[in-house]
Design a protein around this nucleic acid. Structure first.
Length: 265
DNA sequence: CTAAAATCCTGGTGGC
DNA sequence: TGCCACCAGGATTTTA
């Protein structure tokens, strides 16, 4: 984000080319016809989206998903194998979107609220305090893990961060959200903020990749991807269950408040 | 309405 | 060594 703002602010788009057209929303035609000539007036982040406000009233939104990467490079720099979208800028540079798995999505719209309007609050926003968090539990059902990754409940928490936050808060991921005590909700609030700010402090490096490759972040991951390995607190083997098609990792001792009849699907 | 499953994709991994 | 089945996940779409 910070890496993008400086090179993009004020730049005008000349043209755009999609090597993987399905990434364009609503269509490559909309990009080709409306983007050229517009310049970048603002670069921001909302949830897992990067938003670029444009001079013509449109907004360019990019969701990187798991493997997406945006960068600004000189036009003559060799293209990468998985570059899916290439934007020509007015200063000889290019904005390139690289995404091996093709999961990323790019939107061009005059109504960004139609894309990000339903997102929950930003966990690190100053206005988002304990009580603002606790209020959001009203009328919410289901497992706390599933609720944490629901972007309409709170923005920007994915599978890894949800597991890590629940471990920090010592809450079993299969607990019913409605059954959490006030104290547990408070612990969870601080755990989420802690995990996200730690991740942001290491901007640019993906927690997931680092966890797998053994980078600095490996020491910060407490439970994710560590099933069978000893809990860093108590030594018990980390467990893994499936919850809504996703892996969920937790320490059965530190997060022992298991619900009744709690086996995941 | 809720909840769960299927879907999209490819790189990496483990088994043989 | 090579082959292949399988796994990972964010969000949307489909099904129950």
């Amino acid at each position: 984000m910070r890496r993008l703002r400086a090179p993009l602010l004020g730049r005008r788009f000349i043209q755009v080319r999609f090597t993987w057209p399905p990434m364009a929303r609503p269509s490559t035609e909309v990009f080709s016809s409306r983007l050229p000539g517009q310049s970048v007036t603002e670069v921001a982040r909302r949830g897992k989206y990067v938003l670029m406000s444009l001079s013509g009233g449109d907004t360019l939104l990019v969701h990187l998903k798991m493997t997406g990467d945006l960068r600004v490079v000189a036009r003559d720099q060799a293209e990468h194998r998985h570059d899916r979208v290439v934007f020509d800028l007015d200063n000889g540079q290019q904005l390139r979107f690289n995404d091996p798995r093709k999961f990323g999505r790019l939107y061009l719209t005059d109504s960004p609220a139609s894309i990000v309007g339903q997102l929950g609050p930003e966990p690190l926003d100053e206005a988002f305090d304990e009580s603002a968090f606790i209020v959001r539990f009203e009328r919410r059902a289901g497992r706390i893990k599933a609720l944490l990754t629901d972007q309409t409940f709170i923005a920007g928490v994915g599978n890894i961060y949800a597991d890590e936050a629940l471990f920090l808060a010592r809450i079993h991921p299969l607990r019913r959200a409605a059954e959490l005590t006030q104290q547990e909700k408070r612990r969870l609030y601080h755990a989420i903020r802690h995990v996200l700010s730690a991740a942001l402090a290491h901007e640019g490096s993906s927690l997931r990749d680092e966890a797998y490759r053994g980078g600095r972040f490996q020491n910060m991951v407490q439970v994710y991807g560590r099933s069978g390995h000893p809990c860093r607190i108590c030594g018990s083997p980390i467990q893994r269950v499936r919850l809504g098609q996703r892996s969920t990792h937790f320490c059965p001792v530190c997060q022992r408040d298991a619900p009744v009849g709690h086996q995941a699907t």
